[in-house]
Write a protein that binds this DNA or RNA. Sequence first.
DNA 1: TGAATATCCTACCGAAAAAGTTGGTTTTTG
DNA 2: CAAAAACCAACTTTTTCGGTAGGATATTCA
Lengths: 150, 150
Amino acid sequence: MRLSTKGRYAVTAMFDLALHEQDGPVPLTEISTCQTISLSYLEQLFAKLRKKELVVGVRGVGGGYRLGRPAHQISIADILRAVDEKVDVSRAAEDGDPAQALWIEFSEKLYSYLDERTLADCVDRPYVQRITARQDDEHGRGIVVRQDAA
Amino acid sequence: MRLSTKGRYAVTAMFDLALHEQDGPVPLTEISTCQTISLSYLEQLFAKLRKKELVVGVRGVGGGYRLGRPAHQISIADILRAVDEKVDVSRAAEDGDPAQALWIEFSEKLYSYLDERTLADCVDRPYVQRITARQDDEHGRGIVVRQDAA
DNA sequence: TGAATATCCTACCGAAAAAGTTGGTTTTTG
DNA sequence: CAAAAACCAACTTTTTCGGTAGGATATTCA
């Protein structure tokens, strides 16, 4: 189990894709500038996400990335596992140490918790829908904070 | 938020202390040999735990470490925060990016989940079943997907 | 008193991971 | 063709992880 800034980058990027799911593919340049992550680092993360089929790349002008499957079928744990590729929760399950056994028990609970949390759970809420609705009417999507919505 | 082998070391060590709470202080040499972690690395971790008053050191022969307070008052999140000392969950809360906002929302839920899991919960099972039964109507896995509770 | 046990403390080290950089190539659209 | 984008690989820098080394201090017990 691992959860660091790397995982946060991946999850927030996936949030972004989920938020703009109906607007066609989201280019990484947008996420990069919007979230101050280097483009190439994002590319490396998305290579892993694509390998796990959590995202689909669309090449060429107007391309970008889309979700690999519906948002309610992608859990946070899926995303973390994809970018970490270190799922050895049970490093020493057999040595009979009680404290180790308790850790395994705990981490399994944590995983099942993270497996229950889908992108749809996190994104589909009225508050966010209102925020993004303002952005989506414009095709630009560059700067997030607008002064007026004319 | 960060969760890696470092956090696991700290948590399992704290499990150990909680398990032997009534047997007097537990020396780090014991945890070290029992769990194949280097003594000095453990000492470094416990320096941080002691700074946050999660443990109390007892010097001299027959010494070791005891819990700093009752097991039901120490959460897993407490332990992780102590050894990570990087609690900047809200790295850019104000820049208005919806995806970032969603991450903050999510990580706060995760933290509150980890804050409810105390050492006592993990070590002393029957006691905990009562606690968690109070939290979510469904007993068992402790899956808290809904957050309607005000 | 002195030896043994243990916490406490500081500095340093090597390996690994994280994060970013550079410099491309393909694919697609206009 | 030019621009926008995914794709790809090699590289560098920075940080963290886990460990090593060498102590100092406190306590117990013979």
